[in-house]
Structures are given as C-alpha cells and as structure tokens.
C-alpha cells in the first residue's frame, strides 16, 4: 500500500502528497457512489467503532455511510447512554472497546486531544472526527476535495474564512491544510471570534472588512454561528452579526464572478448566509461538500486500514 500514516489525527502531519493521495482516491470512489448497488467488499471483516461522545448527526452519518459502502462492520458507541456518563474513565472505556478486537476507532469528543490519547491507549487506527475546538481533519479534507473539484487546483487560490474561527475545530485543520496545499488564507472576524494567535494556525492575515476583502477571494468559507449562546455571546445580536459578517445577496456585487461559497453545515439561514447565497446555483458548494464527505471518508478509511483493493473496478 505505501500510505505512510496509521492515524488521521493531526492534519499537520500530512504532506501535500498525502493529501493529494486522499483526494485522488476519493475521486475514484465516486463511481461506487453513483451505482445502483453502492457497496464494495474492500473492508469486509474490519470492525470500525464510531465513538461519538458528543452529539453529531452529519459527521456520524457520513462516516457510517462511508464505512457501510466499504463493507466494514460498524459499531455506534456513545450518546447519552455512554459509560462515561456512568463515571467510567476514557482509558477504561477504550480498553473495553479494544477487548472486542476492533480495527479502527472514529472519535468525536468535546475535549481536545482525545483522539491522540485513544491512539496511545488502543494501538488501533484512530480517525479524529472532531476534538473539542482543536481539529476536524476529515472536514478539512472534504473541503479541500470540494474546492479542488470546483477549481481544478489549489495554486494561487485565496480563501477567506468568515465567522467564529476561535471556537472552530474545523479551522484548526482547515487553515493548516489550505496552507499545505499552497493557498492564501485570510480570516474575517471580530477579535471576539478569533483565536489568540491566528498566525499559529497559519493564517496569512486577519481583517474585519468583509466588503473590502471579498473582491480578492476565490473561495468564501462561511462558518456556522452558534445561535444557542446569548448571554456572554461574542456579538451583540444575530442581526448585527448578519450586518457585519453575513454573506448576503447585497454582498455579491463585491465577489469575483467565479468565487464559490463553502459552509461546513448546518447553515443558519439569515445569519451567516441568506437563502440567495446558500442556494446559489453556481457559487454554493454546500451540498457538494456533503457528498465529498462520504468520498473522502471512504478514501481515508481505505488508505489507513489498507483494505484489499478499492473495489472501484470490481
């Protein structure tokens, strides 16, 4: 096989070549997903645990579909009935899971650093499906895939990321990954929504002038605003947020003709995006991202677990 990684935990450990291998592999999985029978025996006999220690619908569904289409046996573990709720430590939970002789753990946890810890304890393949506000590498890879399909290459692309960057696990992976691929990255947010040191993530610049930066952007990546929070919110109102940082129809006048829009979902219509932009027939790549999620996760599972063959030709 020759894919040089056992885990997908920190996107910064992946080279440009590694990432291209994933994207190209993901592309070959398209044909499986467009058949009537969307299943290949590649990971038959492998057991993959989806350990989701905090609520997640999309990422979990996407992983589950990817695993099933590769014929892996899956175990969904987590939710409100988790043993951690009963006071079991993470270490004990993971050791218990390993006693089932599983091959791979896909983990989502609200605490940063948990995937690495699970890798150290378990010895099996670990895929980070989002840890705290640290990283979310498969999201970054599906974003890259979507941008690559839409733009053909990463060379010279200027990506603007708009919104709650400081609390975003997506950005912890996406910004370094975009830099690895040679893109320019500008963050658009007020200081209340920024991490302490955006340069540490690799961002080339930070601005609060959304209209001013829009004409330069090839990709406008809108982040989800957590509308649950009101007290102590980092912005005074959703209305004002939309006014300053929402991608609205009015702002299309500043965009390049071929600029595209991404969003990790789920979207808040009328907050970070209005419906005109969310549903834009040529610019919006939001549903392409969802599809890319399945392709990329199939590719990652296949490359890490080293199944028999990718089954695309069978």
């Amino acid at each position: 096989m020759g894919f040089p990684h056992k885990h997908l935990i920190d996107i910064r450990e992946y080279s440009r070549e590694d990432i291209m291998t994933i994207l190209e592999t993901a592309k070959t999985f398209k044909q499986i997903n467009e058949r009537r029978i969307k299943k290949v025996p590649t990971l038959k006999g492998f057991t993959v645990v989806n350990m989701f220690n905090e609520p997640s619908t999309r990422t979990r569904s996407s992983f589950e579909i990817a695993e099933k289409r590769l014929s892996a046996d899956t175990l969904n573990f987590g939710g409100s009935g988790t043993s951690t709720v009963k006071g079991e430590s993470l270490t004990d939970t993971v050791k218990t899971l390993c006693s089932y002789k599983v091959d791979c753990i896909v983990v989502r946890d609200k605490h940063a650093g948990v995937p690495r810890k699970i890798a150290d304890i378990s010895g099996v393949h670990v895929i980070d499906a989002g840890d705290g506000k640290h990283q979310h590498p498969t999201q970054a890879l599906l974003d890259l895939y979507t941008i690559w399909e839409a733009k053909g290459s990463f060379e010279g692309l200027h990506v603007g990321i708009v919104g709650d960057i400081g609390h975003s696990r997506v950005c912890g992976s996406l910004i370094p990954a975009l830099k690895t691929m040679g893109c320019k990255v500008t963050l658009v947010a007020p200081q209340t929504l920024l991490p302490a040191r955006p340069d540490v993530l690799g961002a080339d610049g930070v601005t609060t002038d959304f209209n001013g930066i829009l004409p330069e952007l090839d990709v406008v990546y809108m982040l989800r605003i957590q509308r649950e929070r009101f007290e102590g919110a980092p912005y005074p109102s959703l209305r004002e947020y939309n006014m300053l940082y929402g991608l609205t129809q009015d702002r299309e006048q500043y965009m390049k003709p071929d600029a595209v829009i991404c969003h990790p979902g789920p979207i808040n219509r009328g907050v970070e995006l209005d419906s005109y932009m969310a549903d834009h027939p040529t610019r919006s790549l939001i549903l392409d991202q969802v599809y890319a999620g399945v392709l990329v996760r199939m590719a990652v599972l296949y490359l890490l677990l080293g199944g028999s063959d990718n089954g695309a030709d069978s």
Binding site: A112, G113, D131, H134, P195, A196, V200
Partner: peptide, 10 residues
Amino acid sequence: EGVASTRLGL
C-alpha cells in the same frame, strides 16, 4: 493564552 491555546485548541 497565545501559541499553546491556539495550537492545542484549548
């Protein structure tokens, strides 16, 4: 707060 908090997402 600074390099470590950003790098580790804490």
